[in-house]
Write a protein that binds this DNA or RNA. Structure first.
Lengths: 329, 329
DNA sequence: GCAGATAATACAAACGTTTGTATCTTTGCC
DNA sequence: GGCAAAGATACAAACGTTTGTATTATCTGC
């Protein structure tokens, strides 16, 4: 591997001049800069990032910690962040926690060991507060939390406007004429789900209605199925689900009972997982705008200013599962 | 940040002794090793990987290049690789190519610039041969290709047994009594799809039958739909699809024509995407064993011995879309 | 108790870059 | 032409670790 010292020798100058020439310092005159660039290109020089980072005392790697990269939401968020960070010459080191606390601790330690310049994190379900995060990063490394955030932790936070989104979704169901609307609300240990539940309630309250039913801990298709049949017994004619997988479970149960969707029963899910558009009937869903979340978080890292919070509106995607007009056509 | 020099000063020894003590060299006596470890722990020392890597001339980061991390197959493969590599003290730098050649080039350059110790790669659709890969890594950096491989490139290769898998899937359809079997074969620019097509043909040939229809460039639901209706016109009563998304498209078309699945028409897809088990009817699928592929690739990296090839058998997952017996029950 | 061997540690250079300071060269101006 | 200012480059130290060699301390056996 060719070094700046070799280039310097070839040109009869010193390594410092080569270094300055290659980083575009005004302290070298244009003619030598050109000469250096020419020789560097000829010799196939490539800056040794490791040495550079050691000297400058920082790296160009941003650590990203997510529960699992396989979930579309997170992979899309990572994709968005990557685009912005790569553009800025930064690279990304991705760690999964598999929703486990000890994996989260391990991931953060790894990132600290590798001296990443910043961390972007969405915490695991198992992690109930941010103390371990603060312990490990300890003010040394800037932190941007996204989607799942601990509000007591310092640093930037980027979240979806879950309240508004759920409000919108419920409003949409109301506009379709459903009046006995229940919800599959997910885990109350997560702020995001709490906000969705509140948005759901607010929309009904504003319409002078009460929730027909509220089910907690619904997260996978199975729990959605169970909640779905209970919802039918409770007289619901529509459901807003805080997750797509549970919405799918509910949809299946409802259809098995012989009800038509959306004529007899309406469903809106959350997250806009790709399967919601693939199945029949397609499921209306509240899109989380994962890529935008990722991009915004990345920008927050770039301008690692300090504290702050960014709230991104969600987008309601109306499909067959809840649009009575669409199906009439 | 505390350094070994500080520890050395605190103990009245030299940095070299501290370094040797911490790396467990037999050249320090046990008592000093213990003393060093104690002080290091007290002072909260953490080895500076950047300096260490510079000195040793190598890093502990493995680069992984995939078309997109959002696809379940790749995220699962990455997960498997990560588990093995983390266990070995290595970290993972993930790059996406979005199936584009120039992004692949960029990713490989980034990895080389960051002096990764090895690269695990599944090439983009747009990349038709491995010349750019050889150019950039140039024998300097060990390469392990997985799933999508260029066989003329040196280094280890880990692939699924696509031939056997497709053979198995087609055999299954035959065992269910289907006799006019067509295939949605995907892109012939990819070795994996070619092998699947050959496995399909071989299974039919072994049963004394001919393919009822073969459709190429089927990859997304839409192309699957088109091919599906053409397959019906061609008199098919079953389809083996080399992809799950195209299988879904075909399934939808077939149902819209009023045919019952699997009684009147059988379908088997490939990849075992999660939606195949979520929808009704569920789709039988040929699982790619992504995690195992990732783990095996990672092990190949660990013992970066030289050339070689590992072939992993696939697993046929039988669901409603093709199992006539299951539905009769 | 001493030569010789071995164990333990110290010394110093190196990895490739960056950057503050010093030195040398050029320029402009009176 | 001489002098100051600025422009350009050289020098050297530093980042924190690793590692070959040199030095010192300890041990063995006679």
């Amino acid at each position: 591997m060719v070094t700046i010292t070799q280039i310097a020798a070839a040109l009869g100058v010193t390594p410092s001049t080569v270094s300055r020439a290659l980083s575009g310092s005004p302290r070298v005159k244009p003619s030598t800069r050109l000469a250096v660039e020419k020789v560097a290109a000829e010799m196939g020089y490539e800056r040794n990032i490791v040495a550079s980072n050691l000297r400058r005392g920082r790296s160009d790697i941003v650590g990203i910690v997510v529960p699992r990269i396989g979930r579309e939401f997170f992979s899309n968020a990572i994709g968005g962040a990557e685009a912005v960070l790569n553009e800025a010459g930064l690279n990304v080191l991705i760690c999964q926690t598999h929703e486990r606390l000890d994996d989260e601790v391990r991931a953060l330690r790894t990132l600290r060991t590798n001296r990443v310049c910043a961390v972007m994190l969405s915490h695991a379900i198992e992690s109930k507060d941010g103390s371990h995060i603060a312990d490990i990063l300890g003010g040394q490394i800037p932190l941007v939390q996204f989607d799942r955030v601990f509000s007591d932790l310092p640093g930037w936070k980027v979240v979806n406007n879950n309240f508004e989104g759920a409000y919108l979704a419920t409003k949409h169901l109301l506009s379709q004429g459903y009046r006995h609307i229940g919800t599959l609300a997910g885990y109350m240990s997560s702020e995001a789900y709490v906000q969705r539940l509140e948005g759901f309630r607010a929309a009904l309250a504003d319409a002078g209605l009460k929730p027909a039913a509220e089910f907690l801990e619904t997260i996978v298709p199975e729990t959605g199925r169970q909640a779905g049949s209970l919802a039918l017994e409770a007289g619901c004619d529509a459901i807003y689900s805080a997750g797509d997988f549970s919405a799918l479970g509910a949809l299946q149960t409802v259809r098995e009972r012989g009800l038509r969707i959306p004529q007899d029963f309406g469903i809106v899910g959350t997250a806009n997982e790709s399967f919601t558009s693939l199945i029949q009937p397609s499921i209306s869903s509240l899109a989380l705008k994962a890529a935008e979340l990722g991009r915004t978080s990345a920008r927050a890292i770039l301008s690692a200013l300090g504290d702050g919070e960014t709230v991104i509106p969600m987008e309601l995607i109306i499909r067959q599962s809840s649009d009575r007009n669409m199906n009439i056509k």
